[in-house]
C-alpha cells in the first residue's frame, strides 16, 4: 500500500525532514511504500555522512552555521545540497522488487518531469558540471539544473529477500539562487572541494513556469505521484 503525504509538509529544520525520510525507509524495510513532499522552514546545507570524515569538517561545519547555513548529515549519497524555504523535497520509498538504482532514478525523474509539465516546464535528466551535487540524474531545464537526486538502499531484514530504496529529489522551487550557492561554495572552499558555477548553471520553478498555471509545485508533485500509484 502506498502511503502518500499529498500535502506539502513543513518541517522546522532540514534535520527533521531527513528524520522523516529515515522513518519512511524503515517502514519500507517492513514492506511499506511511501511518498513525502516536504520543505524546511530554515536554511541549511546537507551532505552524506561520509563528509564528517573530511579534514576540517567540524570547523567548516561551525563556520557554515555561523553564516546562517547549519550543516546536517543525510543518509543518501552525493554532495552538498541546499535546503530551506523555496526548496521542495520529494522522497519515495518502497521495496525495490528487482528494480535497479537507475530504474529508481528514472521513476523519480519521470514523476518530477510530469509535475513540471503541469507548470509548463520541460525538463530532462542529465549531468551538469558546475552544478551543486552533480550527477547523471539531475533534472535540467534549458541546460540549467532545477533538481538534484540521490538515493539510499538497504537490504530487507531476514527472512525477507531483496532491497528497499529511498529515492530523494531536492527541487529548486522559489528560491533566490545566489545565497544557497554562495553558502555551498564557501563550505567547499573550506573543505578544499571544487566550487559550483554559481546561479548561471541553475534555475528555479518560479523562473521557468508559465504564467497562468495556478498549481503549486507540491500540488503538481502530489498529482504526478497519484498518477503512478
Amino acid at each position: 500500500m502506498l502511503d502518500v503525504a499529498t500535502a506539502l509538509r513543513r518541517f522546522a529544520s532540514a534535520a527533521e525532514g531527513i528524520d522523516a525520510e529515515r522513518g519512511l525507509l524503515q517502514a519500507a524495510r517492513a514492506g511499506g511504500r511511501g511518498a513525502l513532499i516536504w520543505m524546511a522552514d530554515r536554511p541549511a546545507l546537507v551532505a552524506p555522512s561520509a563528509f564528517s570524515r573530511l579534514p576540517g569538517f567540524e570547523r567548516s561545519s561551525a563556520m557554515s552555521a555561523a553564516r546562517g547555513w547549519p550543516f546536517h548529515l543525510r543518509p543518501t549519497g552525493g554532495g552538498v545540497t541546499p535546503q530551506g524555504p523555496g526548496i521542495v523535497n520529494l522522497a519515495l520509498t518502497g521495496p525495490a522488487d528487482g528494480l535497479t538504482t537507475d530504474a529508481a532514478y528514472r521513476g523519480l525523474c519521470d514523476i518530477i518531469s510530469a509535475a513540471l509539465v503541469e507548470l509548463g516546464i520541460a525538463s530532462e535528466p542529465g549531468p551538469l558540471a558546475g552544478s551543486f551535487c552533480d550527477g547523471e540524474w539531475n533534472l535540467l531545464c534549458g541546460g540549467r539544473k532545477i533538481a538534484g537526486t540521490a538515493q539510499r538502499w538497504a537490504p530487507r531484514p531476514s527472512p525477507n529477500r531483496g532491497w528497499v530504496f529511498l529515492a530523494h529529489a531536492a527541487i529548486l522551487d522559489e528560491v533566490p539562487l545566489a545565497a544557497p550557492l554562495a553558502a555551498i561554495d564557501a563550505l567547499h572552499c573550506e573543505l578544499n572541494l571544487p566550487v559550483t558555477s554559481g546561479p548561471s548553471a541553475h534555475t528555479t520553478v518560479a523562473l521557468e513556469r508559465e504564467a497562468g498555471r495556478g498549481a503549486s509545485l507540491g500540488e503538481a508533485l502530489a498529482g504526478a505521484i497519484s498518477g503512478t500509484a
Binding site: 555522512s49 543518501t76 549519497g77 537526486t149 540521490a150 538502499w153
Partner: peptide, 29 residues
C-alpha cells in the same frame, strides 16, 4: 567504500549495519 561502522576484529551480529558503499550518488547499506 565510504564507511566501516565496525572495526577490524570487532564482534558483529548478523544483519547489523557494518559498512556503506556509494555509486552514482546512491548509498548502499
Amino acid at each position: 567504500i565510504t564507511s566501516w561502522f565496525a572495526s577490524e576484529g570487532a564482534s558483529v551480529s548478523e544483519g547489523a549495519l557494518i559498512a556503506e558503499i556509494m555509486t552514482a550518488k546512491t548509498q548502499y547499506e
